[in-house]
Simulated scan of single mutants.
Amino acid sequence: MKELKRTIRLLYTGQSQRARRFRYGLVVFDALTIVYFIATAALPTTQVTAVTNTVLGILILFDLVARFWISDNLRRELARIHTLADLLVVGSLLLAPLLTENLAFLRVLRGLRLIHAYHLLRDLRRESVFFRRHEDAILAAINLFVFIFVTTSFVFVLAFDEQAGFAGYIDALYFTVATLTTTGFGDITMTTAGGKLLSVFIMVVGVALFVQLARAMFQPSKIRYKCSECGLNRHEPDAIHCKHCGEQLQIETAGSTVA
């Protein structure tokens, strides 16, 4: 068991080519599952989708158990936002046959796993100049993407009949984006107190996420690299000294410079 645990730990945290390929494989799996959950959110449950959901739930559960097993701090692992999201996703997948409520909107939370894992972020920062320069914008875009589609799925479950199908889901997406941008066309509205509170939530949180994305896109590009002397972790892409304390930096680059 010790050898198995060591092997799994190396796959999740190691620096070998095999470990990096494994982590990128997890990203591909995460991306495919989120696309599947979005595509099937408005579809009626069939025997095929029920089996597929159960299989995906088991695979995600295996990933969770492996991460818990190799973790040096289980409490910290449980406190991570993508871990909590995965727990909700697994619950919505494995408990769905026992419940009457439609929990499809919870499954889109799987998107929080996309590149939010610490070791994957480290891999991308080391291997991709593009990611290092645009990390904040990429993460903000993923957060906004997840918020839009989780909210859309929730609006669909709350305000539309299951029989509305794909057209109803498009209406829910349209309502979510119109509310988020405060456009307020008024052709699709919430009439209940709960629906109005949901609209307020979409506007407040959605606008905040949208502003965060806009700021990340248009502010000067920075690279995350912790200064060993003062701890400052944001620097210009071509910085050779920390602008706060003057300590020499050794930011890994691919040889390119920023004009």
Rank of each mutant, 00 (worst) to 15 (best):
187 D>A: 03
256 S>K: 11
227 C>G: 10
92 S>P: 09
215 R>P: 01
15 Q>W: 15
93 L>S: 10
81 I>L: 05
246 G>Q: 04
189 T>H: 11
36 Y>G: 09
215 R>A: 06
202 I>H: 09
67 R>E: 09
64 L>E: 06
41 A>I: 05
6 R>I: 04
172 A>S: 11
97 P>G: 10
188 I>V: 14
170 I>Y: 12
206 G>C: 08
119 H>V: 03
175 F>N: 02
95 L>D: 01
111 G>I: 03
132 R>I: 00
179 T>R: 14
230 C>A: 08
54 T>I: 03
122 R>E: 12
114 L>P: 09
196 K>Y: 01
83 T>D: 01
238 D>T: 15
107 R>W: 02
205 V>L: 14
144 L>N: 12
67 R>S: 13
84 L>R: 11
205 V>C: 09
111 G>N: 07
81 I>W: 05
143 N>D: 11
249 L>H: 11
119 H>L: 01
120 L>R: 11
163 Q>K: 12
36 Y>K: 05
147 F>A: 10
58 I>Q: 02
189 T>Q: 13
101 E>W: 14
57 G>V: 04
129 V>A: 14
63 D>E: 13
110 R>Y: 00
69 W>Q: 03
187 D>P: 00
166 F>W: 12
17 Q>M: 13
124 L>A: 07
27 V>H: 11
37 F>Q: 04
129 V>M: 08
54 T>E: 01
44 P>E: 02
25 G>Q: 07
65 V>W: 11
129 V>W: 07
229 E>F: 07
111 G>R: 10
160 F>R: 12
95 L>E: 01
133 R>S: 02
45 T>G: 05
175 F>H: 12
156 F>E: 02
245 C>T: 01
161 D>E: 12
189 T>L: 10
177 V>N: 07
61 L>K: 04
6 R>K: 14
38 I>C: 07
100 T>Q: 13
194 G>H: 03
119 H>S: 10
88 L>D: 00
156 F>Q: 06
146 V>K: 06
220 P>Q: 03
84 L>Y: 00
172 A>Q: 03
223 I>R: 15
